[in-house]
């Protein structure tokens, strides 16, 4: 059944589904391959990944809520411009918030906080989901996608910090004799780690598909 614009409140199971969708089945990084730049650039330590994940989560939820709120007021022709302005406003808020909370984190993330504006996950959710759904559902969608992104950043940051620095969140793991694999902190390590995670995800999905439909598989 197709809901008329926000007249019908979504059932709990349906809301839950849009939440879980972003978290796992439609994970923005591993499945949709969106938001690559921050995913690669700031995941050289778990701390940076945490900060970036939280900042993006905040912007995503707020902009989804506001876009859903004004969705009937905005003319179609200027909708993208409106969405970008809404997102840019929240990014400015986050930018000043991080600066106030922790200067070292602010310095480590650098221009990438401001670059949340052009993270295609956020504009993508505004256009594909929040512009067509009621506020509550859009917030859940934002939470799901945001946490999915957060999870992906942690996956990358974890691998890169453990291999590249022999530590997790700054605590050494392997004792003094560990020779850090510095390559994983450098740009190539980012590409290789993400490629490896994508391989894990695609082979895992392919296996699940084979199990679900064994009759269709040839050879």
């Amino acid at each position: 059944m197709h809901h008329a614009h926000g007249l019908v409140e979504p059932s709990p199971s349906e809301s839950m589904e849009s939440f879980l969708n972003g978290l796992w089945k439609q994970n923005p990084v591993f499945v949709q391959v969106l938001g690559m730049c921050p995913t690669l650039a700031i995941t050289n330590s778990v701390r940076n990944a945490l900060a970036m994940g939280l900042a993006t989560l905040f912007v995503l939820v707020c902009s989804n809520a506001l876009v859903a709120l004004v969705r009937k007021l905005v003319p179609r022709q200027v909708r993208i411009a409106t969405y970008i302005l809404i997102i840019a406003t929240f990014v400015t808020i986050v930018d000043y918030m991080i600066k106030a909370i922790s200067v070292p984190v602010y310095k480590a993330l650098g221009a990438f906080i401001a670059l949340i504006v052009v993270n295609c996950i956020i504009l993508g959710r505004a256009e594909a989901f929040a512009s067509k759904n009621p506020v509550g559902k859009s917030i859940l969608d934002g939470l799901g996608m945001g946490i999915g992104f957060f999870f992906a950043l942690l996956c990358l940051g974890g691998v890169r910090e453990i291999l590249g620095a022999g530590a997790f969140l700054g605590y050494p793991l392997f004792g003094p004799n560990y020779q850090p694999w510095v390559l994983f902190l450098l740009p190539p390590g980012g590409f290789f780690t993400l490629a490896a995670w994508l391989l894990v995800f695609t082979s895992w999905q392919a296996r699940k598909k084979r199990r679900q439909a064994p009759a269709e598989v040839q050879s």
Partner: peptide, 20 residues
């Protein structure tokens, strides 16, 4: 499994190594 984005990322990693 490696076709598509994963392959591009691996190639980018090697290119990035070269650019280092």
């Amino acid at each position: 499994t490696a076709k598509g984005t994963a392959l591009v990322l691996m190639l980018a990693g090697i290119l990035s190594l070269a650019f280092m």
